[in-house]
Nucleic acid binder design. Structure first.
Ligand SMILES: [Mn+2]
Ligand SMILES: [Mn+2]
Ligand SMILES: [Zn+2]
Ligand SMILES: [Zn+2]
Lengths: 142, 142
DNA sequence: ATATTTATTGCAAATCATTTGCAGTAATAC
DNA sequence: GTATTACTGCAAATGATTTGCAATAAATAT
């Protein structure tokens, strides 16, 4: 644990968002103006390995990784497709589902990620339902 | 629907894996040697928009997108951290969970992704349990 | 405390998957 | 047929992430 690593982890913990490496760097660099973006990346990957941070790739369009401090309990995410707001939630019911799955398939589950995509309360009103025109292509397929 | 698009979609449907764009191109190019990788990308993005394909980013380490034909029913994935094998499964129980969540948070869920990471039967035996040494850092954090 | 070894950093350059501009083709409309 | 439009191949651009390396800091040994 070096000064930089401590700073990066502290900055991440201080946030209640899921920052990108750049966002995190922008914040941490205020405390240590010489802190480099590659150090942020390296540290985040290290923290990930150590199980203290997890990388989230739930941005719908191709984009940057986001980082999530792995505070004790696992949690899951709802993401508004429109405004990109995130709701975090626990899912106690998942335990049983996982166990069933483990028994059924004879595997060991180490972690689980549940992501819901949709429209948040605010966006739900503004946006009408979305149409898909090529649905009929489905008929061509087995 | 052009010749290329049809070929790409057919190649994807024919596979039972979740190929990367490159893998898919490698296969489709056998039928049409002039097929270009950017056409594969463009087509996959188009299919995604049309709701016929979904992009999966469940490769653990930073890597390529993988593509999954969206045949009628939603399904979910178990991924072996060791051999990267994938088990697909349905999760009927999720419907209720989603509804509960929608009511509780007043949102509309449009899609859901559940991913389990772990060790498959085969890998389970070979690999011992994994240690994390920096767990004690947790105590430093709120 | 000083010298020695080891790990981490900053910086710049490299990497790699994905996207984009554009001129040429194929498809479709008139 | 010609005009209009959409799609493709190719090459170059993009953008996030990673890496090599020399400099710096931390840890360990003397
Ligand atoms: Mn989170
Ligand atoms: Mn699948
Ligand atoms: Zn919203
Ligand atoms: Zn396995």
């Amino acid at each position: 644990m070096t000064t930089q690593r401590r700073l990066i982890l502290a900055s991440l913990d201080a946030l209640d968002t899921h920052p990108t490496a750049e966002e995190l760097h922008a914040i941490a660099v205020q405390q240590d103006p010489s802190l480099n973006l590659s150090t942020v990346y390296r540290t985040l990957r290290w923290l990930e390995q150590e199980g203290l941070v997890s990388t989230r790739r739930f941005d719908e369009p191709r984009r940057q990784d986001r980082f999530d401090p792995m505070l004790p309990s696992q949690h899951h995410h709802f993401i508004c497709k429109s405004c990109k707001n995130v709701i975090e939630f626990d899912l106690p019911a998942l335990g049983d589902i996982q166990q069933d799955f483990e028994h059924l398939h004879q595997v060991r589950i180490e972690s689980a990620s549940v992501v819901f995509y949709g429209l948040c309360t605010a966006c739900n009103r503004q946006n009408g339902p979305v149409e898909s025109e090529a649905e009929r292509e489905l008929s061509q397929r087995t």
